[in-house]
Design a protein around this nucleic acid. Structure first.
Length: 573
RNA sequence: CGGAGAGUAGCGCAGGUUGGUCAGCGCGCAUGGUUCGGGACCAUGAGGUCGGCGGUUCAAAUCCGCCCUCUCCGACCA
């Protein structure tokens, strides 16, 4: 293996901060010459960025192979008809890029590959003897996200490792799923990351069990809750929090009270001098044709994901004023008491039944009702938990305190069950000769996002600090004056020797001032820097510097001692 | 899709309100020279349809209209 000469490589660095980047990983990937934007959420990987990406891929491949995965490669372009059969053509909505081929066939750019892999399994898997099976790929996906941001953290075109396992029955999936879980933990640890595994909402993917691996990060695109006490962690969409009931008190008779200009819960509570949790808040949504009237304790917020799930819908949007008026409610003073219409569904959050003598709207401009109680005063079609867990709420497992955190979703694993195999007719014959649908799991990791997350977690003021395992090169050999024949001779012999020892070596032989080369070295973040300058020729020593902590060791300039010292630094750095 | 902001040389920006020596600055780039252990210096030089289209005007980077693109916040998101 040969070393790479920077003067003949393509590693363009930027001295100045790009104006258009906010996240450290995004800024550094641009500055350190790893990526360049082509359009919103669409990036070119430059050679050094591509090398780093391949290092991450190598880790993922090793761990996937270790749990019996077989790598394959599926198409980017899918026939829309296949997606129509699972119903996801509509479910995915506008983030699915669709087009017609020249024959007028509807096609799309694959945002994920459940349909394609299940179709493959349908054709090829006939017998229980072929199971279990784990197939995976590392491949480009495209999702026309309404909002791409943060560089590779949330791109529209992105590289993903997606794996799919096939099983005879649910118990076999249950047995295998933890193996994938542990493989994921190993992958992230090798990349220098410690994401929190959280219980997740399977969402559009369907299925019964699901975990997301969330890297805690203030600017993360996702939100989850975690209990410091017992380790309970869940995606915010699925998180459950304990709602402490009010002390029991006798139910008082309803009475009307004037509350002029009180259009919000806060205003009503302040006006009447009561805490917000002694009010009932009315929130309206439209779900297709139906109007949904949610009643929830005034201090809580509606969790729209939970609501959509209990309603069994994917189309949930806030209702308009006209919608609200149409069912006999008064915006700002809406009440569950006295509304009407066949197409209204009243959903009562489970915070309401245990609450006593609440203040609710009177469906009359300027008035509220005191002492409203459920179910005494109004009916509901559904009573269930639709509240958003809050920071500081009690943990459902141990009663400790939940913390809300932002995070970057690095991976997501699902027990899909038979959702896709059933809709696509992917069956096999079991030991008794019975046709049964394949039981599936699916497992994703955003590779580009993972790379960005590595940088997000491993950088300092001056640049990237690559963990050795995913560094694009392990050693940077910098020749301070490449025009000096003795320096370049020493440097090339060191670089050659290190490369022959199996290390990936970048030789900075550019004719630049030393300061500039040192700064670029920090920026690009290769774990070990070997400096060869006039001093080396004088003293017979090469300076080895570890990027992580700046520790410098003068090392005798013989190739063997340098290799030993470099290996030492890599092991500890 | 809603809110906010931005598009002037490869990058970072000034100029714009008051239309007219207004095509500018720093970095970078090219050439020559001096430097060479933590973003050196001198000299010379190249590089821009001022995002696009249309309008107002004797005259538009500057004023008006429409459109495009990008960024951030929100909605959304395997």
């Amino acid at each position: 293996m040969a070393y790479v000469r920077w003067s003949h490589y393509f590693l363009p660095t930027w001295k100045e901060e790009p104006a258009e980047a906010d996240l450290p990983s995004h800024r550094l990937m641009l500055r350190a010459g790893l990526i360049r934007p082509l359009a919103a959420g669409i990036y070119t990987y430059l050679p050094c960025g591509w090398r780093a990406l391949r290092r991450v891929e190598a880790v993922v491949r090793e761990e996937m192979d270790a749990i019996g995965g077989a790598e394959l490669h599926m198409p980017v372009v899918h026939p829309a008809e296949l997606w129509a059969r699972t119903g996801r053509l509509d479910d995915f909505g506008p983030s699915l890029v669709r087009f017609e081929d020249r024959a007028g066939r509807e096609m799309l750019l694959g945002p994920t590959h459940e349909e394609v892999v299940t179709d493959l399994a349908r054709r090829e898997i006939q017998s229980w003897r072929q199971l279990p099976l784990m197939l995976y790929q590392i491949q480009t996906k495209f999702r026309d996200e309404p909002r791409s941001r943060g560089g590779l953290i949330r791109a529209r075109e992105f590289t993903m490792k997606d794996g799919y396992s096939f099983h005879e029955d649910a118990p076999d999936l249950d047995r295998y799923y933890p193996e994938v879980y542990r493989a994921y933990e190993r992958i992230f640890r090798r990349c220098g990351l410690s994401p929190v595994p959280v219980e997740a909402d399977p969402g559009l993917m369907g299925g019964s069990g699901s975990h997301e691996f969330m890297l805690a990060h203030d600017q993360g695109e996702d939100t989850f809750v975690r209990c410091a006490g017992c380790g309970y962690a869940a995606n915010r969409e699925g998180a459950v929090a304990v709602k402490e009931p009010d002390p029991d008190e006798p139910l008082l008779p309803q009475e009307e009270v004037a509350t002029p200009n009180c259009y919000t819960i806060e205003a009503v509570a302040a006006f009447l001098g009561i805490p917000t949790r002694k009010t009932a808040k009315a929130v309206f949504y439209r779900a297709g044709k139906e109007l949904v009237f949610v009643v929830i304790r005034g201090d809580l917020e509606v969790n729209e994901a939970k609501l959509a799930r209990v309603l069994g819908t994917t189309e949930l949007s806030p209702a308009t004023e006209e919608d609200i008026v149409a069912v006999g409610a008064v915006p700002g003073y809406a009440s569950p008491i006295g509304i009407s219409g066949d197409e209204v569904v009243v959903v009562v959050d489970d915070s309401i039944p245990s609450a006593r003598n609440l203040v609710a709207g009177a469906n009359k401009e300027g008035f509220h009702l005191r002492n409203v109680n459920f179910p005494r005063d109004f009916p509901a079609q559904l009573v269930t938990d639709v509240a958003l867990a809050r920071d500081g709420d009690p943990c459902p497992r141990c009663g400790g305190m939940l913390r809300v955190q932002h995070g970057i979703e690095l991976g997501h694993i699902f027990k899909l069950g038979t959702k896709y195999s059933q809709s696509l007719g992917a069956t096999f014959l079991d030991r008794d000769g019975q046709a049964r649908p394949l039981v599936m799991g699916c497992y994703g990791i955003g590779i580009g996002r993972l790379l960005a997350a590595v940088i997000e977690s491993h950088h300092d003021e001056e640049g990237i600090v690559w963990p050795t395992e995913v560094a694009p090169f392990q050693v940077l050999v910098t020749v301070l004056n490449p025009k000096d024949g003795d320096q370049i001779a020493l440097a090339t012999s060191v670089a050659t020797h290190l490369a022959q020892a199996g290390l990936e070596v970048l030789l900075d032989d550019r004719e630049r001032s030393p300061g500039e080369k040192f700064h670029d070295a920090k920026l690009v973040g290769i774990p070990v820097l070997a400096v060869i300058g006039p001093r080396s020729l004088r003293t017979g020593e090469v300076d080895l510097e570890r990027r992580r902590d700046g520790v410098r060791n003068p090392t005798p300039a013989s190739p063997d001692s340098i290799e030993r010292a470099v290996q030492d630094l890599l092991r500890t750095g």
